[in-house]
Simulated scan of single mutants.
Amino acid sequence: MKLAILSRNGSLYSTRRLVEAARVRGHTVRVLDPLRCYLRIAPGGFAMRYKGKPVAGYDAVIPRIGTSVTRYATAVLRQFELMGVYSPNPSDAILRARDKLRAHQLLAAQGIGLPTTVFGDNPDDTDDLLSLLGPPPHVIKLNEGTQGAGVMLTEKPAASRAAVEALRGLYANFLVQEFVAEAGGADLRCFVVGDRVVAAMRRQAPDGEFRSNLHRGGQASPAQADAQEQAVAVGSARALGLGVAGVDLVQSSRGPLVLEVNSTPGLEGIELACRVDVAGAVIEYVAGNISC
C-alpha cells in the first residue's frame, strides 16, 4: 500500500507513530503538509501537486487535520477522494464532526445519548433558551473548540446569561449544555477503529477543574469500556461517517452520554496509558479496506 498522511508536522507523536506502524508492516508512506498541496480542478481532470511535483499513485490517505486548517485541508482531502484515493475519514465526515451543533443534531437523530443542548441566536430569547435547559450549572462551548478550549462552566443564571451575551457580542458560535454532575469530572475516551473500540482510557479532571482533557491537566488511566459504552462509541463514529474517531463519553443516571466525537484523535495519551498499538490498528484497518 502506498499511503499519504496529511499532517502539518511530521515530528508530532501521532504522525510519527502512524509512519512507524505503516513501515513496519511493509507499506510505503509519506507525510504531506496539506498547506503545501495545491489543486487543479477541471471536468474529468482532478490533479494535485506538492512542492512542484505531481501527487499520484496513492492507495490511501490518513488525514491528521488541525482545526486551524480545516477548510483548506479538507479541500485537499476531497481532491484525493475525487482522484480515487481511499480515506478512513472522508472530508465531509470531518466537517460534520468539527461542527459540534451539526454533530449533536446527527447523533440525537440516531437516538444516541448526549447532554441536553440548546442553541439560539437572538438576545431576546436568552432567558427562554436557558429555561429549555433547566437550572445551572451550565456548560457553554464554542462550536468549534478543541482540547477543552472555549469551554466554560456557569453556576448561576446571571452568569449563564452574561456568558451568552458576551459570546454573542463577539459573534461567536456556541452551544449551551446541561452539566452532568454525576460524572464527577471524569470521562471515557474510546478510540474507535472501524466497528470496534481498540482502546479506552479514563480521564479525570484535576481538583478545581471540570474539564478532563489531558491538555488541561487531566490524568489518564487505562479502562475497559463495557458493552453499552462500546456500542455508543461505535454508533457515534458511524453516525458521522468516521472510520477512525475518538469518542468522549460521560456516565450519567441515564447511561453513557456523548460529549464529543473527535475526527483527529491524538494517539500519545491513549497509547501510553493503555500500552496498545493504536497506530497499528489504524494502519491495518486502512490496509484491509484497500484490499477489499
Rank of each mutant, 00 (worst) to 15 (best):
L3Y: 05
I5L: 14
I5K: 09
S7I: 10
R8L: 15
N9I: 11
S11M: 13
S11W: 12
S11D: 14
L12K: 14
R16T: 14
R16F: 08
R17E: 13
L18V: 07
L18K: 03
V19Y: 06
R23N: 01
R23T: 13
G26I: 01
H27V: 01
V29K: 01
V29F: 05
V29Q: 11
L32P: 08
P34M: 13
L35G: 00
R40Q: 11
G44M: 06
F46L: 03
Y50D: 12
V55Y: 07
A56Q: 13
A56V: 13
A56S: 14
G57N: 05
G57S: 04
Y58C: 00
Y58R: 00
D59C: 05
A60I: 00
V61K: 00
V61M: 06
I65M: 09
G66S: 13
G66L: 10
T67E: 08
S68A: 14
T70R: 12
A73M: 06
Q79T: 15
Q79R: 12
M83N: 13
G84M: 11
N89M: 05
P90W: 04
P90N: 06
S91V: 08
D99C: 01
K100E: 02
L101W: 15
Q105P: 00
A108W: 02
I112F: 02
I112E: 07
T117M: 02
G120C: 03
D121I: 10
D121N: 07
D124V: 13
D124P: 00
D124F: 10
D127F: 01
G134H: 12
P135S: 12
L142E: 11
G145L: 07
Q147E: 14
L153K: 15
L153G: 06
E155L: 04
K156P: 00
A159E: 15
S160P: 04
R161Q: 14
R168P: 04
Y171T: 12
A172C: 11
L175S: 02
Q177H: 11
Q177S: 03
E178M: 02
D187F: 00
L188Y: 05
R189P: 10
C190I: 01
V192P: 03
V193Y: 05
V197N: 04
V198L: 09
V198M: 09
A200P: 02
P206M: 01
E209F: 04
R216M: 10
G217W: 04
G218A: 08
Q219P: 00
Q219V: 15
Q230H: 00
A231T: 11
A233M: 05
V234I: 15
V234E: 12
S236Y: 02
A245C: 02
V247A: 03
D248M: 06
L249T: 10
S252G: 11
S253C: 01
L257T: 01
V258M: 06
N262T: 05
T264N: 15
G266I: 07
L267G: 02
L267Y: 00
R275T: 08
G280P: 08
G280L: 08
I283L: 08
Y285P: 00
V286T: 14
C292P: 03
C292H: 13
